[in-house]
């Protein structure tokens, strides 16, 4: 009996070892490129081919005299604007698609996936042609509109799911208790949609910040987004400033994620332990 338990235990241990090695390979695959990029942001060498020595000078340059930061701000502004606009339009659209019956509902539900599925190049060319025809100047406004175009379907898809899963009698209960439609929306519907709205915001923001191809088509000479700028820099050779900027962005992202999970944990604990008292 004892022998048998030992054998199972040994098998378990060897399995655990294999799992660890496998996991390490997977993680290496995902994160090695990023690590290399971070390491080279500290490289004292203009051309990033081999390691010369440690330096902070690229960070200095980034924050003192570099136009990269300026493009970062443009990118952020575009992402924020595109997020706000697409979440508002998409949420209203989802309401229409879930709560009302009309003839072309099925068509719209299906057509939603077209911008998601078609290659970005196609959408980029299409938008460019549209702007040309409409005599619309390329630049920031054009980029924002383009981003809104491809963000809306994602928002609608997320919010549609949320709304469909929402028990409508909860809103009826609110009206039943004397709240008019506006009060019901503000006090009941909106708070219940907050998780969906937040994930829509994250989704839109990420899509917008990430986008290179479509932005490349509709960007103006002066107002271009950071990814497009970096892409154009590749042709003349990347400076380690880009590495430094990327590292800063990753640091901010990681910090944000940590902060997020920390607040989540605190909030959850507070909700569990500290039951509100009223009397």
């Amino acid at each position: 009996m004892k022998d048998r338990v030992g054998r199972i235990e040994r098998k378990k241990r060897s399995f655990n070892l294999k799992m660890t090695i496998f996991s390490l390979i997977v993680f290496a695959f995902i994160y090695l490129p990023i690590i290399v990029m971070i390491v080279f942001s500290f490289n004292d060498q203009k051309r990033n081919y081999y390691w010369k020595g440690f330096t902070f000078k690229w960070y200095e340059k980034l924050f003192t005299d570099s136009d990269l930061i300026q493009y970062l701000w443009i990118s952020l502004a575009i992402a924020v604007l595109a997020t706000i606009i697409s979440v508002i339009i998409g949420t209203i659209g989802a309401f229409g698609l879930v709560r009302f019956e009309f003839k072309i509902k099925k068509l719209i539900n299906g057509a939603l996936y077209i911008p998601v599925v078609i290659p970005e190049v196609v959408l980029g060319i299409a938008l460019l042609m549209l702007y040309e025809t409409a005599n619309m100047p390329l630049g920031m406004a054009a980029i924002v509109m383009a981003h809104v175009t491809f963000c809306i379907p994602f928002v609608v898809i997320i919010m549609r799911g949320r709304l469909a899963g929402m028990d409508q009698s909860i809103e009826e209960a609110s009206m039943d208790l004397g709240a008019n439609r506006l009060t019901t929306f503000m006090r009941v519907t909106l708070p219940m949609l907050v998780p969906g709205i937040l994930s829509s915001c994250f989704m839109s923001f990420t899509l917008s910040i990430d986008d290179v191809i479509i932005s490349n088509f509709v960007a103006g000479p002066k107002s271009t987004t950071l990814p497009v700028k970096i892409l154009s820099l590749v042709k003349v050779g990347l400076s380690p400033e880009v590495n430094a900027l990327a590292t800063v962005m990753i640091a901010v992202l990681i910090l944000g994620l940590l902060l997020n999970s920390l607040t989540q944990a605190i909030l959850k604990k507070r909700a569990e332990n500290n039951v509100k008292s009223y009397f």
């Binding site: 909860i170 209960a173 009206m175 039943d176």
Partner: peptide, 19 residues
């Protein structure tokens, strides 16, 4: 409208406000 009527309802699904 429902909010103008002096009747109240208990729903099958309870319909409590989850938040």
């Amino acid at each position: 409208e429902p909010f103008e009527r002096n009747v109240n309802t208990v729903f099958q699904s309870y319909a409590l406000f989850p938040h």
